Simulated assay, not measured.
Amino acid sequence: MTSTAPLIAVVEDEDHLAQGLLFNLQAEGYRTHHEADGDAALAWLLNPSEKPAAVLLDCMLPGTDGFTIVQTLREASIYTPVLLLTARSRPEDILQGIEAGADDYLPKPFDLNILLVRLKSLLRRTSWQQQPPASNEPPPIPDAYSFNHRTIRFDTLELIAPDRTTHLTLMEADLLRFLTDREGQIVSRKDILEQVWRVHEDTDTRAIDNFIVRLRRYIEDDPASPHHLLTVRGIGYRFLAHP
């Protein structure tokens, strides 16, 4: 393991699970930092001795819970990728984590290989965003979608508006891509749950509404009277680039 290996923060209070994660992450070549208490974890993440490349974050912790931790990080403009570890039987945890700003989630108990694949995916996406093009290569064509004087940059996870640039989580970007790819079509809440967020359990789909409210603040001139991201009563939503 080298000093240049990515640093992964593990926030988990179950000692046997935490030790297993630390051992396997180190075996994969990562450096690790462990916190078992939510209050201590939040304090460290807000002012780390070294910025981690990603955070593996349990939902339920002594002290500050995982949802509050990720929400506080986003409010502090800290966009370190967060992989949320959730209880298998609680799909509402998944929606709450997505709404708080998590980039991905994994239900417990999980397969270690799946966790490592998800982690590598988050790190790879971050690397793509930070890597400048080689001097002898033409600049890459942005993976972008433009409408209403706004541009969604899927490659850099940004929504660029005339007055501000908003950083997006992977979950926010994935939902915006899902909607813009189906411009003009009605998209059901069930489709969003299953095809974007991989939630297949019976879930109160109205929980998505709060997430949609936040997206409207990003893309609408007047979020209280939306023209682009419309609610289709009893079904779901429809995105219109040119209403």
Rank of each mutant, 00 (worst) to 15 (best):
L95P: 01
L95T: 09
Q96A: 13
E99D: 06
E99N: 15
A100S: 14
A100Q: 05
A100M: 03
A100H: 07
G101E: 12
G101F: 09
G101N: 06
A102Q: 12
A102S: 14
A102F: 06
A102I: 10
A102E: 08
D103C: 09
D104N: 14
D104Y: 04
D104M: 09
Y105I: 03
L106G: 13
L106E: 06
L106M: 06
L106P: 02
L106Q: 10
L106S: 03
K108C: 12
K108Y: 02
K108L: 10
P109Y: 11
P109Q: 14
P109G: 12
F110Y: 15
F110M: 12
F110P: 06
D111C: 04
D111N: 05
D111K: 11
L112H: 12
L112E: 09
N113C: 00
N113I: 01
I114F: 02
I114E: 15
I114H: 04
I114N: 06
I114P: 01
I114G: 07
L115D: 14
L115S: 10
L115V: 11
L115I: 07
L115T: 14
L115N: 10
L116K: 08
V117M: 12
V117S: 13
V117Q: 15
R118E: 15
R118Q: 14
R118D: 08
R118I: 01
R118P: 02
R118V: 05
R118C: 05
R118G: 05
L119P: 07
L119T: 00
L119V: 05
L119E: 11
K120M: 01
K120N: 15
K120S: 13
K120D: 15
K120I: 02
S121L: 11
S121P: 01
S121I: 03
L122K: 08
L122R: 06
L122M: 09
L123G: 10
L123H: 08
L123R: 05
R124T: 04
R124H: 14
R124C: 03
R125A: 15
R125M: 08
R125P: 01
R125G: 01
R125L: 10
T126G: 12
T126W: 11
T126D: 14
S127H: 07
S127P: 00
S127K: 13
S127E: 15
W128L: 13
W128G: 07
Q129E: 13
Q129L: 07
Q130F: 02
Q130A: 14
Q130R: 11
Q130G: 10
Q131T: 15
Q131A: 12
Q131N: 04
Q131I: 04
Q131E: 09
Q131L: 14
P132E: 14
P132N: 13
P132Q: 14
P132G: 13
P132R: 13
P133C: 05
A134E: 11
A134W: 01
S135F: 09
S135P: 00
S135T: 09
N136M: 00
N136P: 02
E137Q: 14
E137N: 06
E137P: 00
P138S: 11
P139F: 03
P139R: 03
P139C: 00
P139L: 12
P140T: 02
P140K: 05
P140F: 01
I141K: 09
I141M: 09
P142I: 04
P142F: 03
P142T: 00
P142D: 05
D143G: 00
A144P: 00
